[in-house]
Amino acid sequence: MAAPAQQPLPFQFQFLAGAVAGVTEILCMYPLDVVKTRAQINTGASMGIVESFKTIIAKEGPATLYRGIAAPILVEAPKRATKFAANEQYTALYKKMFGLEKVTQSLAIATGVSAGVTEAMLIVPFELVKIRMQDPLNASKYTGTMDALSKIIKQEGPFALYNGLEATMWRHAIWNGGYFGTIFMIKDLLPKAESKNEQLRNNFIAGTVGGTFGTMLNNPLDVVKSRIQSATGDGPKKYNWSLPSLALIAKEEGMATLYRGFTAKVLRLGPGGGVLLVVFESVSNFLRKNFMDQQ
């Protein structure tokens, strides 16, 4: 006899599980994000990951690898919570809308894209502050996250915090669609888990492959987003909208430039995607067992 369908978590539990997963991932992987951003906004010769780490530590100190982390930490809980909770909510909505009894890969991709757009609208100001803090040209300009935030608003206006919104929406829609769509496919291919450890293994493998594939798809949009959000001042901006910026970067610097920072990013979001899924599923199962089963 088939096992009964697992009862969906209430929104507040989905939110909590996503928050714990997100903060865990960023604390583990943030230095790679710094290296990735530096590579993407640099228009000169690029360095490898090891060389980048050595250079940053030697010239600016190891603490620089966590410069700007306050902004993503502040948004990480609602960001990751929104990613997973929105994905669960869109799944329920689309299943009802299209009369589906179970999730298909097409549905997983559609819910991932929808969750990505929702997530992007929330995080843009935090991403912009983070990018400004990670840019070495701003090392003496901002003393901290709140100083960066106040100076951006004062010098460029509050709407400057939403520079790169369109590129961010593209970046997150593509990554989440690839991530959740791949997770569905990989879980279907893996042997059925017979134990808790095997379930953790399957989640880590599926999340890692999903994170890697999502990164392969969205890296060019991430380069564009970093370029748009790193630009300061009130004058004309070289990069504004995603598609013209993609074409301009490819024309001036070559197609390979659109994959600047890819290695650092995939090292973060490949295993990071595995960490996200494992922690999210583990916290979800804990909440379901200890709070919902008692009701």
Rank of each mutant, 00 (worst) to 15 (best):
N219G: 02
V75P: 04
L122W: 13
R80Y: 15
I73R: 03
G144H: 05
P72S: 06
T212R: 00
V23N: 05
N285W: 05
K95R: 14
G254K: 05
A108K: 11
T143G: 14
E76W: 06
R80Q: 14
T104Q: 10
T143L: 10
D33W: 12
E252Y: 10
V124M: 12
I73W: 03
T212K: 03
L246V: 14
A39W: 06
I174S: 09
L100H: 03
G211F: 11
E119V: 09
M121F: 15
I249Y: 03
G233L: 01
L32C: 06
I205R: 10
R268D: 13
I57L: 05
K102G: 04
G207L: 06
L137H: 13
A45I: 04
K238Y: 05
L190C: 06
D33T: 14
Q199Y: 04
L165K: 09
K265W: 05
I205N: 04
S114T: 06
F204M: 14
K154V: 07
V35C: 13
F280P: 01
G270T: 02
A139R: 04
D234N: 13
L122G: 06
K192A: 15
R260V: 06
E119K: 08
Q6E: 14
T118G: 14
Y142W: 13
F184C: 04
E25W: 08
S245I: 00
S106M: 10
T212Q: 03
N42T: 08
K237A: 13
A231C: 15
L165W: 13
K96L: 08
A120G: 01
P136Q: 08
Q295M: 12
G210K: 09
I152D: 00
T91D: 15
T145Q: 09
E25D: 09
T257H: 11
E253S: 01
L137F: 06
K238R: 08
